[in-house]
């Protein structure tokens, strides 16, 4: 773990705040879209495959001294999970994912049946920059109805096995002198995980529709309700 100089630290905090501002504005545009002509099926009228068990590993939240198993964040509730990194500036990358998560969070908060049954989860692809201290700036996004956790790892050594089990690879951008620019090339994939820790849907690169995600979440809730009765 490396320590950041004070100016670098302030720059990253500014980036984090700017990131949050940018995505909040994006989310308004997404939220304004209507689903009245949806070609998608109604919740509960279809089944979601049990695609694969969710990855596991050691992760950090709020403190670098207190590791947690990733499974504690991906079981017990329905989980919507994505990788991200705080300094990502690709408008179709992390900021778009963030905006979609905000829209989904807002929709889930409106439905009392869903309150407390779903969590949102981000895991950083850049553990050297996205320290637990840095990620604490995002915790205001979490609400009692729909908690949103921002996780990181001690290092790439802990991160890569989690990525590998989800078949995700990344690479670092370099400038003309071969120096890393801080940009991380990665594919956007969002994973919907059931309370037993099974990946039940993967959204990626094509068309990612918050309304469809909410429908899928409701489908899993209906499935859970059936199990209980």
């Amino acid at each position: 773990m490396r320590f950041l100089s004070r100016p670098r630290y302030h720059l990253l905090v500014s980036c984090a705040l700017l990131f949050a501002l940018v995505v909040t504005r994006s989310s308004i545009a997404v939220a304004a879209e209507s689903a009245t002509d949806s070609p998608f099926p109604a919740p509960g009228t279809y089944k979601l495959d049990r695609i694969q068990p969710m990855a596991n590993g050691w992760v950090l939240e709020q403190s670098k001294w207190r590791p947690h198993r990733l499974s504690t964040y991906t079981t017990g509730k329905i989980t919507l999970f994505s990788f991200f990194y705080g300094t990502c500036r690709d408008p179709q990358g992390c900021p778009a994912t963030w905006a979609a998560f905000e829209t989904i969070q807002s929709e889930l908060e409106k439905d009392k049946e869903l309150n407390g049954r779903v969590r949102l989860l981000f895991l950083s692809l850049d553990p050297s920059v996205d320290t637990p201290e840095m990620l604490s700036f995002y915790t205001s996004k979490s609400t009692p109805e729909v908690p949103w956790h921002f996780l990181t790892t001690w290092s790439d050594w802990f991160l890569h096995p989690i990525m590998k089990s989800l078949s995700l690879t990344t690479s670092r951008a370099v400038d003309e002198n071969g120096k890393q620019t801080g940009e991380i090339y990665h594919m956007v994939r969002v994973y919907l995980i059931d309370p037993e820790g099974w990946v039940r849907e993967i959204y990626a690169t094509g068309f990612f529709d918050p309304d469809v995600v909410v429908n899928d979440i409701k489908t899993l809730v209906l499935e859970e309700n059936k199990k209980k009765h």
């Binding site: 002509d37 990358g93 090339y185 956007v188 690169t205």
Partner: peptide
């Protein structure tokens, strides 16, 4: 026409 949010990976396209 329904509006959808296009999630990227656009940086991948630049990986040349």
């Amino acid at each position: 026409m329904r509006k959808l949010l296009l999630l990227g990976g656009s940086l991948l396209a630049l990986m040349t």
